[in-house]
C-alpha cells in the first residue's frame, strides 16, 4: 500500500462519499482500536496480520482519522490506487467536419508556441461527448501515463468542454453592457 500523508480536496470529497458508516466516537479508543473495528466489520478484506504490517505507520500520521480511513477503505475495496502523469495537453477547436472525420486547431498547453492543425477520425470523439461535437467546439486532449493498481499504461483522453450555458440574466447583462458602450461611443466621440 502506498503511504500518502496528504490527500487532495478532491480525494477527501470522493472518499467521503464512498465510506459508508463509521463511529467517530471510536477515535477516542485510539487509532489501532478504530481500525480494528473497521476490519472486524468486514469493510476491509485484510487479515489482522496484514493490517499490523501495513498500517502501523498510521500511528505517526497527523490528520483527520476518518479521512485517512476513508482513503484506505476506498483504495482497498475499490482498487483506487490511481495515479496519472499527463505529458502533453492540447486545447483544440473543431474547424472542419467531413465524412471521415474532422480537423482541429490545436493549441499546445504544455509547451506553448504556435498552433497546429490536426486531422482526426470520428472515433476520436468520445461517445459521451458526441452531443458537444460541432464546428467551433472546444476540447482538451491529454496524453500520458496512468498507473492503476501498480500497472502502468498509456492513456490518450479527449474531453469536450462542458461549461454551463450563459444564463438569460448574464445575456441581458452582456446586452446592456454592449448597448451602453455603443451609445457612449456614438455620442461622446469625435469622428474625423
Amino acid at each position: 500500500m502506498t503511504q500518502n500523508n496528504s490527500l487532495s480536496q478532491e480525494d477527501k470529497f470522493y472518499h467521503t462519499d464512498i465510506f459508508e458508516t463509521t463511529n467517530i466516537n471510536t477515535v477516542s479508543r485510539g487509532l489501532g482500536d478504530y481500525l480494528q473495528s473497521i476490519i472486524e466489520s468486514s469493510k476491509f478484506d485484510i487479515s489482522k496480520a496484514e493490517y499490523e504490517d501495513e498500517f502501523e505507520y498510521l500511528d505517526n500520521i497527523e490528520g483527520d482519522i476518518s479521512t485517512i480511513v476513508n482513503y484506505m477503505f476506498a483504495q482497498r475495496t475499490f482498487n483506487l490506487n490511481v495515479r496519472a502523469l499527463c505529458l502533453q495537453k492540447w486545447r483544440g477547436i473543431v474547424t472542419d467536419i467531413n465524412e471521415d472525420g474532422f480537423k482541429a486547431k490545436l493549441e499546445d498547453l504544455t509547451n506553448g508556441g504556435s498552433y497546429e492543425i490536426g486531422s482526426f477520425k470520428m472515433d476520436f470523439v468520445p461517445i459521451a461527448d458526441i452531443e458537444m461535437f460541432k464546428l467551433g467546439a472546444i476540447f482538451y486532449w491529454s496524453i500520458g501515463f496512468r498507473t492503476i493498481n501498480y500497472t502502468k499504461e498509456k492513456f490518450s483522453e479527449v474531453r469536450f468542454q462542458r461549461l454551463p450555458q450563459i444564463s438569460d440574466e448574464d445575456f441581458d447583462i452582456a446586452m446592456d453592457k454592449g448597448n451602453e458602450k455603443y451609445d457612449f461611443l456614438i455620442s461622446a466621440n469625435e469622428c474625423i
Binding site: 461549461l163 447583462i173 448597448n179 458602450k181
Partner: peptide, 20 residues
Amino acid sequence: SLKQFFVFLGLGELKGEKLS
C-alpha cells in the same frame, strides 16, 4: 448593425471574464 455587434462584443467580454 454596429449596435448589435456590440452585443456580440458584450458576450465576448463575458466569456473572457468568466469562461474562455
